[in-house]
Amino acid sequence: MWTYILRRILQAIPTLLVISFLIFSLLYLTPGDPIELIMGTEDEQISPEQRAIVEREWGLDKPFLVRYFNFIFNAARGDLGTSYVTSKPVFSSIMERYPATLRLAGSAMLLALLISLPLGITAALKHNSIIDSLATALATIGVSLPKFWFGLVLIITLSLKLHWLPTTATVNDMSQGFWPFFKAVIMPASSLALGMAATQTRMIRSSMLDVLNQDYVRYARSKGLKERSVIYGHALKNALIPVITVIGGEVGGMMGGAVVTESIFSWPGIGRLAVNSISKRDYPTIQGITLVMCISYMIVNLLIDIIYAWVDPRIRLDK
């Protein structure tokens, strides 16, 4: 187990090197001039003298490979560079927003599971029942309408019509207690959770159905084991593999921030930072975010693989 984790951590190093090179090249190919986009306005063009100064300051006058190796060298020492736009260190800009992103992602995931687990299990047990169709309908709607739709509909009903919740988040942590955080997070989390709950419900239902048809479950049932213990003791655990995979993918995705939801609910997460820095071609920040994303994904995927082994002991990680 520990050697496995160690090996995965070692695998991370070449992965990060590859992704940093890829993102570097991709940004090189991407049109858009950071100097113009950051220093200029729609009205104002930047003068050649000024451009030369800025290029020197940002190191854009150096050849591609020199820039790349400088970046790698600095990143290895934990310095991701400074943002072109704000002149702040990239690492601290990312870390400033990361907790808010994690809190939103966590809340959304919790909410999604609260919906999908009971709904999915019931749908499977009561195959072709009303609950089952309800679950299918929820899933269908969940993936067919965009997040901005849910977000705006929530704000229009809960804030504008009913005055239950404030339109924008004033806090994004529990520094003022649970309730203010809950009030701030419930709408963005719901709008994110609906889409996730959709896929999860369908997954849970389907793999539960699969498992319930397996011989060992039939055997357990025929042996006269209590239905509850059959379902929660045997079936559910074995049905979890695809569900965990899907959840993992979604958690990983949300680590990169949920741009639309963050914008609608004014949530100060990493997604808005990413979009802003891409629109300004703030190369250091984009590179930093990509690396952080990659690390998050690798951690999530490592966790998933460990959970696989825990759920199904026959899966041996070290092999």
Partner: peptide, 18 residues
Amino acid sequence: YKIITDKSVSAIALQNKE
């Protein structure tokens, strides 16, 4: 200065006296 990225939401916040 409240930063409300979405203009529609900002208009709702105005109607709500936020």
